[in-house]
């Protein structure tokens, strides 16, 4: 009986001692160079227009496929509007993308052909003012833009055609999220 108790104590001591040391090691680790991102930060980036992302998050969103997949799903779940890929057009630029209750129209600038107006209108929910726009490319990368305040229910952007955001919006294979 005493022998059994001793064995139990020994096992316990060893297990608890190991567990404490392992806990110490886990707590003293480093997050550098692992490509992992904080879920809280990823969520803030998805829903809070004013959130300033860390370089680590942006890097992971550009390079880490699992992070990109997670972020895409998070957008799917949290964004108010999702504008899917545009059905293949014959040629030329697309004039608009739309989904139920929301439309994004594109108009070239007459003042400068290298610029384009992007007009966002969400009439599905008049109380909803989109604050941030995401353009997700098929390669998993995401472009994000904080939106100006809506004017009479519409938000207008003026973009350089060659900017990543304009190219993404005009690309029929991208998907757009509004939050």
């Amino acid at each position: 009986m005493a022998e059994q108790a001793g064995t139990t104590k020994q096992h316990f001591t060893q297990a608890a001692f190991d567990a404490l040391l392992t806990t110490d090691r886990l707590m003293a680790g480093t997050a550098a160079d692992t490509g992992l991102v904080s879920p809280t930060e990823m969520y803030a980036y998805a829903v809070d227009a004013s959130h300033q992302p860390s370089p680590g998050l942006l890097d992971a969103l550009n390079t880490q496929a699992p992070v990109q997949a997670s972020f895409r799903r998070l957008l799917n779940n949290t964004a108010r509007y999702h504008l899917p890929q545009v059905a293949a057009a014959s040629s030329g630029d697309i004039e608009q993308r739309e989904s139920e209750g929301c439309k994004i129209a594109f108009r070239p600038s007459r003042a400068n052909a290298a610029q384009i107006y992007v007009i966002i209108e969400c009439i599905g929910d008049t109380s909803f003012n989109p604050a941030v726009l995401f353009v997700c490319a098929v390669d998993g990368t995401t472009n994000r833009m904080e939106l100006p305040v809506a004017q009479n229910g519409r938000i207008q952007l003026l973009l350089e055609r060659e900017s990543d955001m304009a190219k993404g919006l005009l690309d029929i294979k991208t998907e757009v999220y509004l939050k």
Binding site: R110, A111, I119
Partner: peptide, 12 residues
């Protein structure tokens, strides 16, 4: 510049 009537006027 006169712009497309569908856009809002802007100052750039």
């Amino acid at each position: 510049t006169e712009e497309d009537p569908v856009v809002n006027s802007v100052v750039c």
